[in-house]
Design a protein around this nucleic acid. Structure first.
Lengths: 177, 177
DNA sequence: CGGCACACGTGATAC
DNA sequence: TGTATCACGTGTGCC
């Protein structure tokens, strides 16, 4: 029950007032960094801050997890690199069924590629019934050709692939790994 | 300048006490979700909370950015390769170039095959940009699909080929030589 | 002792 | 009209 001297009392008041000011400013600052704040009373600010903070922490946790999974995803890609050698030959694929011929070519874009292919088909005595060219990425083409052997012609898939390989892809292949 | 009745005064005291209690508990709760808190006075709690919150927000921002860059991160790894192929028994072929995916399927005609393929594409988070179906002879189909990986998706050719192999061809394959 | 932080009761005020 | 919240001055304890 001791009282202070008037001077001390006034200092106390001032100090306390200053402290409250600081606290009030901190509340305002806090309310500005917490988005979606509806009520602005202190309890709501603290409550929503806690809630929002937990969301942020969980979000960081999730994102960190996905970040950890990036290397493994890239590892899968690395593993598949080994398969390329076996695939080089299958950049051209040919199928024969009776007199029908189905050809699949994967190559990079280059002026006159389709023209040279059609010329080669003519040389092979294959009449083209359908040809579809799909762009794949900025530099590649996927070409499907449906053809038919001309009368009296009997050709093998090996002949087709060889002819196309020599006359088409060998000249355009360099950019494709 | 109106005074309250003694009863009302007491209620006011109780209410105010309860409010302070609530605020105090909120401060404690807040201090528990903010890590690395050295001082436990209210100003420090609020200040460190603001600081920590800003760090979290920036961290989330950065992680979101890196998340968007996952494909490019993978791109760096496979930039030497530029293109990755894989052939499974040459009935299914998949290629990946950046986010583009090119799939080639050779199978026999059967009701619902295309539907099942498209469903599988959806399961793989691949959005189909183009699909072309060429009949080859009376019983066979040659299907070419041009698709694109959906955002945040990083899939391998092996995944694609396996999924299609299991869910499509294994059920329809018998008639194909 | 002084500096600091807190809880308390109280009056004022907004809805 | 009660039912909230707030700021204020004060008492008290802790370095």
């Amino acid at each position: 029950m001791y009282k202070r001297s008037p001077i001390q009392a006034q200092e106390h008041v001032t100090a306390e007032r200053k402290r409250r000011e600081k606290l009030g400013e901190l509340f305002i600052s806090l309310s500005k960094v917490v988005p979606g704040l509806k009520k602005l009373d202190k309890s709501s600010i603290l409550g929503d801050t806690i809630e929002y903070m937990k969301e942020l922490q969980q979000q960081v946790k999730v994102l960190e997890e996905t970040k950890k999974n990036i290397p493994s995803a890239c590892e899968n890609i690395k593993e598949n690199v080994n398969c390329i050698d076996q695939v080089v030959e299958s950049k051209i694929k040919a199928r024969i069924l009776d007199k029908s011929v189905l050809i699949n070519i994967h190559c990079n874009k280059q002026d006159g590629v389709v023209g040279r292919i059609l010329f080669e088909m003519e040389q092979l005595h294959l009449s083209v019934n359908d040809i579809r060219i799909m762009p794949f990425g900025p530099t590649n083409l996927e070409i499907s050709i449906l053809a038919e052997m001309e009368n009296g012609c009997c050709i093998t898939v090996q002949d087709i692939v060889n002819a196309l390989q020599i006359n088409i892809l060998d000249q355009v292949q360099s950019a494709v790994a």
